[in-house]
Design a protein around this nucleic acid. Structure first.
Length: 299
DNA sequence: AACAAGAGGCGTGAAATGTG
DNA sequence: CACATTTCACGCCTCTTGTT
């Protein structure tokens, strides 16, 4: 069972809001692509692991102790074994060269083993001090089936094709569930997210274009919102509710500056002079702070 | 005190959806 | 397809609050 889930990381939300509103720098585009694919990978692993009802699963936990600091994609507790899975969504064929994975086109990825070893030490120290009877294991999961590494194999590497077989070990009921839940909750208490490690490369808010954006293709769209309920995106032709389009723009506004905003700011951003409509949306989907004239909305 | 800006409620009409 | 029902946008009104 999934004891801790993971929301879309702020870094990704920021880029989703930014794209289409400015010309992104190379650094931003790369960072965006990496995080998109990384989160996608974690998401598909989560879908897989959800099916194993007898294991306690924690998604995205950060621990900090005398062995160091580490972020864990997945921690799975079953019977007397605690397993850490570091999910990598690498695509394509690579060769192992020294401490690098090198593709035919020459792009390089650092071998994740070093980082895995640090994370393993952090987790092991945490677990052993809680209950020495637990064993700790760590794996890199190559979740994308297109990923190949010239036949290299290591015990701690799990390719997509091996995953089902590997996970079959945790497919059986065991008498530890209660105890494992306690350990899971203990880890949650020790969970210390470090937001500084997850900051996007930001663009000055004043140079970001406001207005409406297609919720799907994320292009900026110049459509006139009349009283109709549905509109289609001039770029991708998909149909959206007026509500969805506005809501997306309002979310963008919040994620781009992370500062609560007023209704009049929202009106200006969405280029829509209908206070009532925006008010309804904001009241329904946003949190608010302040009273009367100083009410600000945020997520 | 006068004024501007905002919240919240209500009624109206049009669009979208459901039904025979 | 025509009609009934539901959902939604929008303007209008009133009350409250902060500013000059």
């Amino acid at each position: 069972m999934l004891l801790k889930s993971c929301d879309v990381p702020y870094r990704l939300k920021y880029y989703d809001a930014l794209v289409g509103r400015v010309k992104m720098t190379d650094k931003q585009s790369k960072d965006y692509a990496i995080y998109q694919s990384g989160y996608q990978g974690e998401w598909s692993f989560a879908e897989l692991i959800k099916a194993y009802k007898h294991a306690v699963v924690l998604w995205d936990v950060s621990l900090n102790n005398r062995c160091g600091e580490a972020q864990f994609d997945f921690i799975v507790i079953h019977d007397y074994v605690v397993t850490h899975y570091d999910v990598k969504n690498f695509k394509g064929s690579y060769q192992l060269q020294g401490n690098m994975f090198v593709s035919r086109t020459g792009s390089k990825i650092k071998n994740p083993d070093t980082q895995l070893a640090v994370a393993h030490a952090v987790l092991e120290s945490e677990i052993k001090s809680y209950d020495w009877r637990y064993e700790v294991e760590s794996y890199i999961v190559f979740i994308n089936e297109t990923f190949h590494l010239d036949g290299s194999k290591k015990e701690q590497w799990l390719y997509k094709s091996q995953l089902k077989h590997h996970l079959s070990a945790i497919d059986n009921p065991h008498p530890m569930t209660e105890h494992n839940m306690q350990l899971g909750n203990h880890l949650l208490q020790r969970h210390q997210p470090n937001p500084h490690l997850n900051m996007p490369v930001k663009t000055e808010f004043s140079s970001i274009a406001g207005g409406l954006k297609c919720p799907l293709c994320r292009k900026r769209i110049e459509i006139l919102l009349t009283g109709k309920k549905y509109y289609n995106c001039p770029a991708c032709m998909r149909v959206f509710m007026r509500k969805e389009i506005l809501l997306r723009s309002l979310q963008d506004l919040y994620y781009l500056q992370e500062v609560p905003f007023s209704i009049s700011e929202a009106e200006e951003w969405c280029q829509l002079s209908s206070r009532t409509t925006l008010k309804r949306l904001l009241r329904e989907y946003f949190k608010s702070t302040g009273q009367k004239k100083s009410v600000k909305y945020y997520l």
